[in-house]
């Protein structure tokens, strides 16, 4: 079975774990629990190559303080979801640094990545406009962009599937060859 290493990154409290747990377990975590470092595993069907193929996603949630570990995960991760909260401007602004750091660690411009504006159910508290997110993504050499809500299950699976597709595009699956590995990491 192929494995994908995905990393979810972003400031504290933007909902990285919430998105991941919603994706992996289908529940919304109400508990207020900052993540130290959690990894999740989920086997899913991959629809990309017409017939359904089982793949495994490794998703790592890291808390923001974990600067040293962050580099480690950046080095090993294959796809990155950069998450901000549409209700907090600073969580959005800080992603630029994070992206640059990933590109530096990876030493390439071409890294499977998606920009995610989470908590889009909280429309009343919105401070980061959707166009802002879209513009940002455009500047990031047309990075994928989604607004999501872990609570209302909006665009949750799409984040992870999109990353898998990007990874596949970048490193095409060698059919019926040795298994490939991938991971999903949440930071």
């Amino acid at each position: 079975m192929r494995e994908y290493k995905l990393v979810v990154l972003g400031s504290g409290g933007v909902g990285k774990s919430a998105l991941t747990v919603q994706f992996v377990q289908g529940i919304f975590v109400e508990k207020y629990d900052p993540t130290i470092e959690d990894s999740y595993r989920k086997n899913v069907c991959e629809f990309i190559s017409l017939q359904c193929e089982l793949i495994r996603l490794l998703i790592v949630c890291l808390q923001e303080q974990f600067t040293a570990m962050r580099d480690l995960y950046m080095k090993n991760g294959q796809g990155f979801a950069l998450v901000y909260s549409i209700t907090a401007q600073s969580t959005f602004n800080d992603l630029q640094d994070l992206r640059e750091q990933i590109l530096r660690v990876k030493d390439t411009e071409d890294v499977p990545m998606i920009l995610v504006g989470n908590k889009c159910d909280l429309e009343d508290e919105r401070v980061v406009g959707k166009e802002q997110g879209q513009n940002f993504a455009r500047q990031w050499s047309n990075c994928a962009f989604l607004e999501s809500s872990a609570k209302s299950k909006i665009n949750v699976n799409e984040i992870f599937y999109d990353l898998v597709r990007q990874i596949n595009r970048k490193t095409p699956v060698e059919k019926k060859r040795a298994k490939k590995k991938s991971n999903c990491i949440l930071l």
């Binding site: 400031s11 504290g12 409290g13 207020y32 900052p34 923001e64 907090a88 600073s90 602004n93």
Partner: peptide, 13 residues
């Protein structure tokens, strides 16, 4: 303040 020490402020500020 909810999330004191968990949430982070603007990097620029």
């Amino acid at each position: 303040v909810v999330g004191l020490y968990r949430l982070c402020g603007s990097a620029a500020v």
